[in-house]
Design a protein around this nucleic acid. Sequence first.
DNA 1: GTGATTTGTTGACTGGCACAACATATCAGC
DNA 2: GCTGATATGTTGTGCCAGTCAACAAATCAC
Lengths: 399, 399
Amino acid sequence: MVGTVSLVESQQTGRGNSADHVRRHNLAVVLGLVHRSQGVSRSLLTRQTGLNRSTVAALVGELVERRLVVEVDADVQGQVGRPSPIVKPAPLAVALAVNPEIDAITIAVVGLGGQVIKRVRHATDHEPEAREAVQICATVIDGLRDELDANYRVVGIGVAVPGLVRELDGVVRLAPHLGWVDEPLAGMLSEATGYPVVAGNDARLGTLAESTFGAGRDLTDFIYLNGGASGIGGGVIAGGQPLTGAAGYAGELGHTLVNSRGIVCHCGGVGCLETEVRRAPLLALVGLADADSDELENALLASESAEVLAEVHRQLDFLAVALRNAINTLNPQKILLGGFLGSLYAVAPGHLDALVAHQPLRASREGVTIGRAALGLNLLMIGAAELAFSAVLADPAAF
Amino acid sequence: MVGTVSLVESQQTGRGNSADHVRRHNLAVVLGLVHRSQGVSRSLLTRQTGLNRSTVAALVGELVERRLVVEVDADVQGQVGRPSPIVKPAPLAVALAVNPEIDAITIAVVGLGGQVIKRVRHATDHEPEAREAVQICATVIDGLRDELDANYRVVGIGVAVPGLVRELDGVVRLAPHLGWVDEPLAGMLSEATGYPVVAGNDARLGTLAESTFGAGRDLTDFIYLNGGASGIGGGVIAGGQPLTGAAGYAGELGHTLVNSRGIVCHCGGVGCLETEVRRAPLLALVGLADADSDELENALLASESAEVLAEVHRQLDFLAVALRNAINTLNPQKILLGGFLGSLYAVAPGHLDALVAHQPLRASREGVTIGRAALGLNLLMIGAAELAFSAVLADPAAF
DNA sequence: GTGATTTGTTGACTGGCACAACATATCAGC
DNA sequence: GCTGATATGTTGTGCCAGTCAACAAATCAC
């Protein structure tokens, strides 16, 4: 509840004025609260930060000067006492979000506070090479540039990549479905656009988005698991922080062993979660060629076929194995399921609940609940933008 | 490298003087460095903290006053310039470490800095009930009290429990081998001895010890996995911090599925790591009834039986499955193996290395190495003491 | 309207740290 | 053994961020 000063790796600069660190951290705390809440009264900020009224006034004042937040008069709502102004993210501050997929590249303008202002989907007729994807992004962004320059301040670009990304330098180590291997994506895109670029695994960024604005808002420890057409990705929030691991690859739960008798996965392993729990057989069983998430879910829910239910149960059984492993390893408060995993759960929630509750180590599963991800279509855009914003949020004074 | 101020949850107290937080954190940083290094020169402290000489002098001065560290003259070693005094943990500051097992309760006096000063092993002729264990501890500690009062300042007791412990309140949720269920251990022991008590899972505390003083000293992300007579326990350090999970149960890797065709585990699951990778069959194969870690290891290394090697390989194969899952989930820099798992690895290091290197997601396994835990007999004593010290280390000003 | 309540605003105060000047203890070369 | 170079301890000054308290302002309740 009380947030004040914090260790900020001051890196170099030789002289690390400590008072400066305090200031920076407090600015970051205030901006973070505003960002997450999309509008808080100043008086609430004083309570949440534990700082003095006058200090919060000064901090907010500095953030206003830096054009990161704006203060607006509160609606009078029957509160006794002098009304406290509402502090909101400045509509000026935006990040660009990019998500390359096999059939399209989506680019969005996202405001501080997580609002998607604009969204452009550029369809491609083939899987783009990395260089090509960068070219497309640069073209789209150049097309937006006048609008951006006139109305916004772009803090940077965040890219959500369906694959393993080394977060340190934004190199895509492996994006199997795009066919990318060791592509220095962030570097290329930065050079092509002039903006600072950060890149991350799509599922990890989805986790970040759910944690900041979605179903993980009030959780400190949860696992997010997403089922997409190309496989299963995931991310972990532990102790309130995203679990990155040594290089940013943490959370790859799709290749957990769930069946020793299973088939060989494209990854070379046997019986991975991803080989047993798949979207394609579900589509086939309900007789859909290609469908978006909602269609598939509706079809599954509407189906009365025993065969469909059996397949759903079969997949949930394997999902439960992976979840039990993950629960034992990470002791989360909640599991959030997205994509078709959410649909599977919607069809037979009791089935999965029971399997997870039938967990050997009672204490670990105690209090673990399963739920669905809250953010829909814009999940990855928000997550990617979140990544781009993270530098500003960590040190607002630098902007 | 540069450490300065940090967010310290100031909890209540209403007025959180921010300057005070800075001071507290800096004291904690300095004490932490001294603690880990068991003696640093003051000049090195200034470099490591990034703080000013005069500030470090003041901080160390305060820690000296609080009797947490001592300054001693450095040995002259051919360094140009005025010699800098060495700051060491005060020999006065100790914690008590407790480790109840099925056949004995071990109690130790451990100094700040991780030195085991005294170690008492109280053998029992049967598995002690929790109440009984508390009684034994209280008796032993009462016996030590004169000595303690005369020479030391006891900051508290840390208990390493072979089971699931809710860290919040030190309740042992389940210690299968001791037969304890929902025992308020910390509360009982605190009442019986008058010292503040904290309790944690033994493997997790072993991880903490390895992280602070052992093979994990310079690592920010690693997994520790220990094989004991009663099963496999583990712990995780992620981002330099112990991974606790929501309630402190994180790191239970012993019940990862490694074989769908396996037998039923005592936990109710099928094919858990713990059911496939066990100490008992190894002992049987080398013809030992009961042996300590070293004996078993020597016997395994000396054996030329194909049968023994086959069993070692079989167990390593299953261990590799669990490790691959864990690597995908956590993306560590290193895996540390303790107990008989370390021995297994010693017999056929190449075998396990190859299995883990044959990892599907190349990027994740990149840079992952396997090693052995460094701390031996006193591992749990040091880990338990570490837990007891953590309050002092987090806020030295309170002592 | 009037008082109670809450919050913004202002100026004085304080604590912690950086900085710089000086003091001190070592080494290296003669 | 003396002298200069080097590194570090020591001391006093100044600054900055945040607290605190007094006052001002804006709302509600009666």
